[in-house]
């Protein structure tokens, strides 16, 4: 039950993009087309789940026993940066079709604040290992959901008559605001 609550709240209520404002850069940059948004979402979910569990292990098995908690930021970002590279090489070797689909998005993920955000939040919320796993999965799927909905809206927006100076970031942010309002409705779920 507890796990389900964590999953639902990471997925819908405290959606990473619309509530925590994490991963806004790809959210604005990659959400032009539906298929690329979906691939980006899957790549993020994949890396996020691995990164969160690995950072959890490093934090509790390495940093806490040696009282090195202040190295949290440095070690997490290094873990994520190297992890992305390893994952990229691994996928390339094991599954070329998957690499074709996710390949170009993987390097971008290093600077995606949502990944580091998940790792930091699990420490902040004192989740245990299983909770971390569920939280990261929910957060990643929530990111996918938000970016896919956004891409769907933006494909339609291309045919709308938007004022010249509002085009691009402006209209995207206002649309995201309306989306965030809609997602607020989910807060009654739990």
């Amino acid at each position: 039950m507890e796990l389900l609550v964590i999953f639902i709240s990471a997925l819908l209520i405290n959606n990473f993009v619309l509530h925590y404002f994490l991963g806004i850069c790809p959210f604005i940059g990659v959400s032009n087309r539906l298929d690329s948004a979906f691939s980006m979402g899957l790549a993020v979910t994949f890396v996020m789940t691995i990164a969160a569990t690995v950072s959890w292990l490093i934090y509790y098995l390495l940093l806490v026993p040696y009282h090195l908690e202040f190295l949290e930021i440095v070690s997490f970002i290094l873990v994520i940066a190297s992890l992305v590279q390893v994952v990229e090489m691994f996928i390339k070797k094991v599954s070329p079709p998957l690499y074709q689909a996710l390949g170009i998005y993987l390097p971008l993920i290093t600077t995606n604040c949502a990944i580091l955000g998940v790792a930091l939040l699990t420490v902040l919320k004192k989740y245990n290992f299983i909770e971390t796993l569920v939280f990261a999965l929910g957060a990643g799927l929530g990111f996918t959901l938000a970016i896919v909905i956004m891409a769907g809206i933006r494909e339609e927006l291309e045919f709308a008559d938007v004022p010249e100076t509002l085009k691009g970031a402006g209209i995207t942010l206002i649309t995201a605001g309306i989306l965030a309002l809609a997602f607020m409705g989910f807060s009654g779920l739990v």
């Binding site: 619309l18 509530h19 404002f21 942010l173 206002i174 995201a176 605001g177 309306i178 965030a180 309002l181 607020m184």
Partner: peptide, 8 residues
């Protein structure tokens, strides 16, 4: 002051 307002 809620997230939606920030986007707007």
């Amino acid at each position: 002051i809620l997230p939606a307002g920030a986007f707007f």
